[in-house]
């Protein structure tokens, strides 16, 4: 078994990635951030989400043997996706608190990108 800390970092990255991917969808943005809200990182949301999922492989690779690292990475992504589903359904406030720091300012940023 590898380093728990690195595996934890990997799980957090996967969770963040799944959150962004979910918040790229209209109905979930509405549930979590309110009606009419935009995805937290604007147009960059899905790409950042996918990027975070890919990045999650790095700490798990650093923290474990390759065979375990890949298996752990995939399972951590599945687990994160399920966690995000349950958070949206039962505790959308928690997700909101997690992404609000991203939303308030970067909203302008994303506009400037446009």
């Amino acid at each position: 078994m590898g380093s728990l800390l690195l595996l934890g970092v990997s799980a957090l990255l996967a969770l963040a990635g799944c959150t962004l991917l979910a918040l790229n969808q209209k109905q979930h943005v509405a549930t979590v951030l309110g009606r009419g809200a935009q995805p937290p990182l604007g147009k960059a949301t899905p790409a950042t989400g996918w990027l975070l999922l890919a990045l999650a492989l790095i700490p798990s690779m650093l923290g474990d043997r390759p065979g375990f690292a890949v298996l752990y990475w995939l399972l951590a992504i599945f687990g994160s996706a399920l966690t995000v589903v349950m958070l949206i359904a039962f505790k959308p406030g928690w997700l909101k608190n997690a992404v609000v720091p991203l939303v308030s300012k970067p909203e302008m940023k994303s506009r400037s990108v446009e």
Binding site: Y72, L75, G79
Partner: peptide, 11 residues
């Protein structure tokens, strides 16, 4: 591998 074992349980 305990983290993987627990994830197997979830799956």
């Amino acid at each position: 591998h305990w983290p993987i074992r627990w994830l197997y349980l979830v799956a």
